[in-house]
Design a protein around this nucleic acid. Sequence first.
DNA 1: AAGCTGTCCTGAAAGC
DNA 2: TGCTTTCAGGACAGCT
Length: 273
Amino acid sequence: MPELPEVEVTRRGIAPDLVGNRVSGGVTRTARLRYPLAPQLPQLLTGLTLKDVGRRGKYLLLDFGAGTLLIHLGMSGSLRLLPRGTPPQKHDHFDLEFGKRLLRLRDPRRFGAVLWLAPNHEIGQHPLLASLGIEPLAEEFTARWLFAATRGRNTPIKQLLMDSHLVVGIGNIYASESLFRAGIDPRTAAGKIALKRFERLVPEIRATLEAAIAAGGSSLRDFIRSDGSSGYFQQQYFVYGRAGEACHNCGSKVRSLRQGQRATFYCPRCQRR
DNA sequence: AAGCTGTCCTGAAAGC
DNA sequence: TGCTTTCAGGACAGCT
């Protein structure tokens, strides 16, 4: 599932090839994604030049000047650059053509979204973006910030880390991994965690995300890099998906539990409340 | 306000 | 072997 690193890798993968290029066509094959996808969207975009590819949380923002195309990859989505005319396969829902190139969205589980945001108002004011939390790779994301933001919150820290209204981009995998690296039990009430422990957690979150970006992004078996190669190589996780196996640090058996309908993995010895 | 649960979707894996 | 069930997951909607 694309988390922030995969989205960022996708952004970096497509931007150099597409920015400055003009949309020459495209097609919508599946209207039913997370939100209805307008069939005539490619026609609406035809003739417009892509100015920039940005990212806010897990949303990709393709700036066309006359508006912004917002793309979310959901949990199984991928964007790839292909030669124009490449035959579509199953689950290829949306194409945007830039001359000889083709930007193609594939999303088997259709949790993703493609939305056209006309420049009626500030882009950040769009309902999907307005209430988003802090960017974890931004300088402003500090231990002190997280400490202040979590006071009075009784929710387990793992679930808060995954709350995009607090901090964006951290999904199920990197939440478990970051907490392991910081030695914090995922069940700990966020508001009870001392500043000193956040001083360890925040850098570990950053290191976890940056390492994943550097590695080319890969957290899911069906994630495909935008250049078309398989971006899926088995990343070494400390705890994610390793229930019953030995902790790399202490040898204890990694445990799993469910928090808010999500699987959490942790080491009972290395991670404390 | 905070914190629950339900929902969307498909395919892989597990269970019988 | 082949069917059915479970699980995976982002983030909104709607409820308490």
